[in-house]
């Protein structure tokens, strides 16, 4: 959902808040494990999308999951619930090292 456009609210006035991504910051920082999908194995069933508590999974044009790593907390529910084991659990430090290579 895109937030509505509105005039800048007078936030000093009262304790009102507006919907916006990152209300708790970039929660991807919390992650210890990173989900990595094997797009060959993935059947596009969307179970990972359904279970993601962080709405951090979207399906791409080929119906494969895309992880929003800025916000994915790495709970790995997607991994354990994948019926074809297409998602693997990679330690964040190793994943970053792999990316750097």
């Amino acid at each position: 959902m895109t937030p509505l456009k509105r005039n800048p609210p007078n936030r000093r006035f009262t304790c009102i808040t507006y919907p916006e991504a990152g209300a708790m910051g970039l929660t991807g920082d919390w992650r210890i494990f990173r989900p990595v999908v094997d797009k060959e194995k993935c059947t596009g069933c969307q179970i990972c999308w359904m279970y993601c508590p962080d709405t951090a999974i979207t399906m791409d044009e080929n119906n494969k999951p895309v992880f929003n790593l800025e916000y994915c907390k790495g709970c790995m529910i997607c991994e354990t619930n994948c019926p074809v084991k297409a998602i693997s659990r990679v330690r964040e430090t190793e994943a970053e090292a792999a990316v750097e290579k």
Binding site: A56, Y71, G74
Partner: peptide
């Protein structure tokens, strides 16, 4: 529910 909410992982 937006990205980057404060729930624990796996909530």
């Amino acid at each position: 529910i937006e990205l980057g909410h404060a729930a624990c992982a796996g909530c």
